[in-house]
Write a protein that binds this DNA or RNA. Structure first.
Length: 280
DNA sequence: AAACAAACCTGTGCGC
DNA sequence: TGCGCACAGGTTTGTT
């Protein structure tokens, strides 16, 4: 579910509401959410610790603790982080709860119906062993910055369908299905173009489209679809879905040309939305 | 190397 | 109203 803009929105919420507060108690319900390590490792690693910093790399949230350890949270498809007053009734599928000191006392909930997401406490000195995917992650367009020249080099480094390349977290980190389809549409580039055959003019357009879509979506607090799966830390909805031009609009008139209908096809199991007239 | 398909889970929406 | 199937924002693994 959450892509870079949604994760960034959560990160900003954590920055304001959770940084500097000590964790007094930790509850782990479903062990699957902490499967990378163990229930004990997460409870022992977090109890008594204070989160001093919250960073994001791609779709990974990385919290620095005053103990020297780091806490990684990945929301995958259905994960949510929520802050609520201590003692508030918890929603179904609340698998990890961090009790935060303060007045009033609050709790940070990790809620995840599909249980694809995870919470990991690890020693950053052992990152290569405990979180190997972090070392292999590609450039984050927002956190690291991504200029046109570097983007052009990434496109030419492989010969793949452009959509597959943009979704590959080892190449560019943070773009998911929604923002990929939206960026390709804005740039007028079809999903099945070869990455190394995109023209210089198209590279310029696609680079600008990616930066704009991600930036605008962050400003809008991400996209909250009809199922309301994604919400921010306080349960607030994002509104970028109101600006979607192709995602989840199959069969509807293209908002760009006003003449063709949006087509949806399956590409490697992912729904892919595009305008056959605007994108070539 | 690239492109699928399947796997991991649960919930929801749709057609019948 | 109820049932069964398809599908969902992600990522990994295995197979062509």
């Amino acid at each position: 579910m959450p892509e870079l803009p949604e994760v960034e929105t959560v990160r900003r919420g954590l920055q304001v509401q959770v940084v500097g507060r000590r964790i007094t108690k930790v509850e782990v319900g479903r062990e699957r959410s902490v499967r990378r390590t163990s229930r004990a490792a997460v409870i022992d690693g977090l109890t008594g610790a204070t989160i001093t910093e919250v960073n994001r790399r791609g779709k990974y949230l990385l919290c620095t603790l005053d103990t020297g350890d780091h806490m990684m949270v990945h929301l995958r498809m259905s994960g949510r982080l929520l802050v609520a007053a201590a003692g508030t009734e918890r929603p179904p599928h609340t698998h990890v709860v961090l009790h935060l000191v303060g007045e009033p006392a609050q709790e940070l909930w990790f809620v995840d119906p599909r249980t694809f997401g995870e919470v990991v406490v690890f020693d950053p000195l052992n990152v290569a062993v405990e979180m190997p995917e972090l070392a292999k992650m590609g450039v984050d367009p927002i956190a690291d910055g991504l200029d046109r020249a570097q983007f052009a080099r990434l496109l030419r480094s492989r010969s793949r369908q452009i959509k597959a390349l943009l979704l590959d977290q080892h190449v560019i980190a943070g773009i998911g299905n929604i923002y990929c389809d939206e960026a390709l549409h804005l740039a007028g580039v079809r999903w099945d173009r070869r990455s190394d055959a995109v023209t210089p003019r198209e590279i310029t357009r696609l680079h600008a489209a990616i930066m704009q879509v991600l930036g605008d979506a962050i400003e809008a607090g991400g996209s909250t679809l009809a199922d309301t799966q994604y919400v921010g830390l306080d349960g607030e909805r994002g509104w970028f879905q109101l600006h979607h031009r192709v995602y989840d609009r199959a069969g509807q008139r293209c908002l760009t040309c006003g003449k063709a209908d949006i087509v949806k096809v399956a590409v490697a199991g992912r729904g892919t939305h595009y305008c056959p007239r605007c994108q070539s």
